[in-house]
């Protein structure tokens, strides 16, 4: 890490104040902060996934993962979330081109796909509940609902951020760099997607 401080080109006499613009590494504060946060989130989801892995077989004589999961449904919703990452990328690229119309369009599509995913999850949870698998039924069910629920909350927060961003852009009220704001939401969104890639494989596809 010793070579991070590479150059001394920070201009301390530009008109907009030194600290706001030139950072010594030349990278943006916001993006660095977001990546640090995502690094931290790895340990959050790691803990939840480990808890599930430890407890996935502990359902006594009740329903276990093999009987419960509806793989076709989850495959479709996983696909939806994956494709929302593509639309997010398109939004980020549009924002970089300063193309507000397309930025808003792709942000809205991404939010919609995310909402679809959350909807599928709500449907899935309800279906499980009707099959007699509730939050407190077994260690398996508690850890399953906790893990996927945390992920669902992350997606929901993402959806809110996306839609709020659409509203803020269309009213032209962005405080700061618009393209970067969209990119930050994008990073968060892709991360949530990548976590689902892991959950989909480890929880749903690999047989317990």
């Amino acid at each position: 890490m010793a070579d991070i401080a590479v150059h001394e080109s920070v201009t301390s006499h530009d008109d907009h104040g030194p600290a706001a613009h030139g950072s010594i590494t030349g990278i943006s504060n916001n993006k660095l902060a977001m990546w640090l946060f995502l690094g931290s989130e790895c340990l959050l989801f790691g803990g939840l996934i480990s808890t599930y892995m430890l407890y996935r077989g502990r359902h006594g004589s009740g329903v276990g993962p093999a009987q419960l999961f509806d793989i076709p449904l989850t495959s479709v919703s996983s696909f939806v979330l994956l494709m929302s990452s593509l639309t997010m990328v398109l939004a980020v690229n549009a924002a970089k081109r300063k193309d507000d119309r397309n930025t808003n369009l792709w942000l809205a599509v991404t939010g919609l796909l995310g909402a679809l995913f959350v909807g599928a999850q709500v449907y899935e949870f309800t279906a499980f509940y009707h099959e007699g698998v509730g939050f407190t039924t077994s260690l398996f069910s508690s850890s399953f609902f906790t893990l996927t629920g945390f992920h669902g909350v992350h997606v929901s927060i993402g959806v809110i951020m996306l839609l709020a961003m659409v509203a803020i852009i269309s009213r032209n009220k962005v405080a700061g760099d618009k393209a970067e704001a969209v990119e930050m939401i994008g990073l968060y969104w892709h991360f949530v997607d990548v976590v689902w890639v892991v959950i989909f494989t480890l929880v749903y596809l690999i047989p317990a």
Binding site: M1, A2, I4, A5, E8, V10, S12, A19, S23, I24, T25, I27, N29, L32
Partner: peptide
């Protein structure tokens, strides 16, 4: 990481 004064390398 980002807000060091000019010349303030990590090992400074």
């Amino acid at each position: 990481l980002n807000m060091r004064a000019p010349g303030m390398k990590l090992m400074n």
